[in-house]
């Protein structure tokens, strides 16, 4: 394999029923920067059934080229069909870099493709860059439960691949004046030749909480100790009309469900306001919240790492300050409720 033959930056564009997932657009934003540094094209890879019409939308988010395979067999994600489709495209068009959203299916696909084309894959990256001198892709991620950051390189194999968690990269502003081109390919698989069959897709009743969409999150950490502490934090959250977040310790202690977990093994959130109470600030947690607009941290340990990522810090006993804060907020909101906003 001659690695010089490989160029362009590719982004896998995940969709369901023709609706494109935001993470693909976020990665087009990140991919645009990589492609500009390398002076190559940014390409989207769009697979599905009746998805061709969505391809042109991707130009606005930075794609120069969109590879499309439109086939009824690709209606729903299946490893065997998507791996074949992507593997064929990679072998034919030879991308230098290929990034995927770290969703269930994105991770599944990237892992299968890496084995299929025998290349390196870095999981759950949070920073992407190019070393121009060596023309290498630098994919960085928290490692060992977020205790340290590591930059992973793939020197001798192409494409250099990585998955990126949703919400870590910023979705670019759409520029509808941009244009590009579509390259369409066939799949060459028939339903009857396939091993796996999707019997049903069961959509959960609306999730009890979807922190990724929250404007305000109040998060409880180990420092809140027990149910009583949890209730105190919940009251503050309710007062602010905020959603409840939690660190891994709190979830593992069974104080709240996993849907509330913020961090590397939970969700990545970007609210306008993130209030974090009794969380020490291990990378495991901070990678999931550091892009929040305003972060307020309350912790009784002045040395807590959470103060490194927070915008405002208070060294205090949560059990003392949080109830007071809640009470004062209630007063303020009552007034606000009367005057209301025009």
């Amino acid at each position: 394999m001659s690695i010089e033959e490989y160029k362009d930056v590719w982004v896998f564009i995940e969709q369901r029923e023709g609706e494109i997932f935001d993470v693909g657009l976020e990665l087009l934003g990140a991919g645009r920067e990589l492609a500009d540094k390398l002076e190559v094209n940014l390409c989207g890879v769009l697979l599905g059934n009746n998805v061709k019409n969505s391809a042109e939308d991707l130009y606005a988010y930075g794609a120069d080229i969109v590879y499309v395979i439109d086939d009824p067999v690709l209606e729903n994600y299946r490893t065997e069909t998507y791996m074949k489709a992507v593997g064929d495209l990679v072998r034919k068009y030879k991308p230098e870099i290929f990034i995927y959203g770290a969703t269930s299916n994105g991770k599944d696909l990237a892992s299968a493709v890496a084995t299929e084309v025998m290349t390196g894959l870095t999981a759950d990256t949070t920073m992407l860059d190019i070393n121009l001198e060596k023309r290498l892709f630098e994919a960085s991620r928290p490692a060992f439960g977020g205790n340290i950051m590591a930059t992973i390189l793939c020197k001798k194999h192409r494409p250099q691949m990585a998955t990126v968690r949703p919400k870590v990269m910023k979705k670019p502003e759409a520029d509808f004046s941009r244009t590009g081109k579509i390259i369409e390919e066939g799949l060459g698989l028939k339903e009857e030749d396939l091993q796996t069959k999707i019997i049903d897709i069961v959509k959960s009743a609306k999730k009890s909480v979807n922190l990724e969409e929250s404007d305000i999150i109040v998060t409880a950490g180990k420092g809140i100790k027990d149910e009583k502490g949890m209730a105190m934090v919940k009251e503050l959250a309710d007062t602010l009309n905020a959603d409840l977040g939690a660190s891994r310790d709190v979830v593992e202690a069974g104080l709240i469900g996993h849907a509330h977990q913020v961090g590397q093994t939970g969700v990545t959130v970007t609210p306008k306001l993130y209030i974090v109470i009794g969380v020490s600030g291990a990378v495991q947690h901070t990678v999931g919240m550091q892009n929040s607009d305003v972060i307020i941290a309350i912790n009784n340990d002045p040395e807590a790492a959470i103060f490194n990522v927070a915008h405002y810090g208070i060294v205090a006993d949560a059990f003392e300050i949080v109830p007071k804060l809640t009470a004062e907020l209630k007063k303020a909101l009552d007034k606000e409720g009367v005057t209301t906003n025009g």
């Binding site: 025998m118 950051m149 590591a150 930059t151 992973i152 990378v283 103060f307």
Partner: peptide, 15 residues
């Protein structure tokens, strides 16, 4: 194919 390039402690911002 992949190797660890560098490792560093998590970024400390201005605080």
């Amino acid at each position: 194919p992949t190797i660890v390039g560098t490792m560093w402690p998590p970024e400390k911002s201005s605080g």
